[in-house]
């Protein structure tokens, strides 16, 4: 899976939790889940669980700690698939 494909899949996953839909349309590696997408921090765990299901991977707490941005999430996924 190339980077653009991965980003598209991630966008689909985070879309129900992103409150700022315009920021979601302009998603990039630099997008911050809470700062830019106005995601509630209680929903970050849903993103992590959805990623686990979609990519059939397991994300440990250490990896989850960093997952505040698109870039960090992509890195965690890429390292595990």
């Amino acid at each position: 899976m190339d980077k653009a494909e991965l980003l598209n899949k991630l966008k689909d996953i985070i879309s129900p939790y992103a409150q700022d839909k315009e920021a979601l349309e302009h998603i990039s590696e630099d997008t911050d889940f809470i700062g830019d997408l106005k995601m509630n921090s209680a929903n970050l765990v849903d993103v992590v669980l959805d990623i686990e299901e979609e990519f059939k991977i397991e994300i440990d707490n250490e990896s989850m700690e960093k997952m505040l941005t698109v870039k960090a999430a992509l890195e965690v996924i890429s390292a595990k698939i």
């Binding site: 509630n40 209680a42 765990v45 669980l49």
Partner: peptide, 13 residues
Amino acid sequence: DSKWERKGYLEKI
């Protein structure tokens, strides 16, 4: 917004 009954939710937090 949150379905905390879903599998894995409680354990992660």
